[in-house]
Nucleic acid binder design. Structure first.
Lengths: 236, 236
DNA sequence: CACCTTAGAATGTATAGACATATGGCGCAA
DNA sequence: TTGCGCCATATGTCTATACATTCTAAGGTG
């Protein structure tokens, strides 16, 4: 793969930073110097540096110059894969078993549910994800019928509601909380594991321009699943 | 804040996508149309669209056009905060207590450790993070002396090694695995919790251009800590 | 010596044009 | 009808230039 010129400039500087040749707070060559070095126009240099700035690798200060940014080991990229896809990728047979499908109002006094419902009703969808027949995760989901009326008529027998929503209510914003909890009696029964087993709890809320769509709690069998996050120059 | 023209074009299209006015696979106006709409040059439009493509919001196909991408609820942004900072931000007093400091060779047969050591020795650093005196997390860390010889002389009594490394070996690439495990006897003793308590296990490896720096396992008290990941248009 | 002004330096934004390259559809030929 | 090739289309890359904005540092003034 032959890199275009601005890509080459970008990767050159990128590897200089990641290898430590350029330390944080170091000043980069100014645009005119890079123009000389690579024998190109300023716009080409600018494109490379702007990309690095957008990625947070450098900081550009108008009038002052460009500087290597300080690293932030926070803000890594977390892969939250679609379960059917992920399970299939590991060579297992994915299964989804719906457990509860209930149309109901928001629980009174539960501010969370009332916000989600937005005055109308909620669809509660509980289900069990499995890999090769073995339980993998229990899912408890609430969907706002105000935001997604179409889900009332959706066929959710084979496809988990998360996958359905991903296809029908695209480009939502989301926030995910990850924690570890012991399995309560019901979770333990469904996951066929002793009460108190460590479970990875993934709580996710999604909304679209301030309209709340869905809230889900997924209890993963702690030993059978993990999430992976990355930080670095490796781009997809 | 007055947006520049290419920023305005970008945010216009961005909100059209996030609000659903533009659905996945939809075709965007071609660059020449946008030039007309905004009365600007092609480079300006191109800058806006390139930024959207870099963010994964749209897909551009040479010769074909620009299309709204399919949403990926995966690849969220995970905040892995520096513990001292995060604890302080919540109004608690952070504490770090070193437990083990041992210079040793890689365990034979442990491919992981041998890779990290790179033929030389490892520094093992175990410690306990606490908030307001209450145990928060146990940390077990290995640092490659081949990669970071300076850490042999570092003062790690008050500052956790993670913070020290962040300041002295910046811009590492990293991979984090997140799972849930029960506390074994030693972890339970240190966290002052019963054996089997659900713990959030965060395993992180960092390296710099294929040279391995450190590997760490942090066991968080499940009920006392959680991670948060976000996905959406909100940029810092 | 302290403070203010100012000139230069560096990035931010935008224009207009040129050529390169991948795509997809249309028309022509076998 | 089928398959091939060509061409219009749309994006990718790059140039050269212009002016705006912001920061830094030098130099002059009180």
């Amino acid at each position: 793969m032959t890199l275009s010129l601005h890509e080459r400039i970008r990767t050159d500087i990128e590897s200089a930073i990641l290898s430590g040749k350029l330390a944080p707070e170091d000043r980069l060559p100014v645009e005119h110097e890079l123009m000389q070095t690579y024998q190109c126009s300023r716009m080409t240099v600018n494109k490379a540096l702007s990309a690095l700035a957008a990625a947070g690798l450098i900081e550009r200060r108008k009038g002052a110059g460009s500087f290597v940014g300080r690293p932030h080991a926070h803000s890594m990229i977390l892969d939250v894969p679609d379960l059917p896809v992920e399970v299939a990728k590991r060579g297992h047979v994915y299964g989804y078993q719906p457990l509860v499908r209930k149309l109901r109002a928001a629980a009174r006094g539960n501010a969370e549910e009332e916000l989600l419902a937005g005055g109308r009703r909620l669809l509660q969808l509980d289900g069990l994800h499995s890999a090769d027949g073995a339980p993998l995760a229990v899912e408890r989901r609430l969907v706002s019928l105000a935001a997604v009326p179409a889900i009332a008529d959706a066929d959710l027998e084979k496809e988990p509601p998360g996958t359905w929503l991903l296809r029908h209510v695209p480009w939502t914003e989301a926030e995910t909380r990850i924690s570890a909890v012991p399995a309560d009696a019901e979770i333990a029964r469904l996951l066929k594991t002793p009460v108190g087993t460590a479970c990875l709890l993934v709580e996710r809320q999604t909304w679209r321009s301030s309209e709340r769509i869905t809230a889900v709690r997924q209890y993963f069998l702690g030993t059978a699943y993990h999430l992976v996050a990355r930080f670095g120059s490796t781009r997809p």
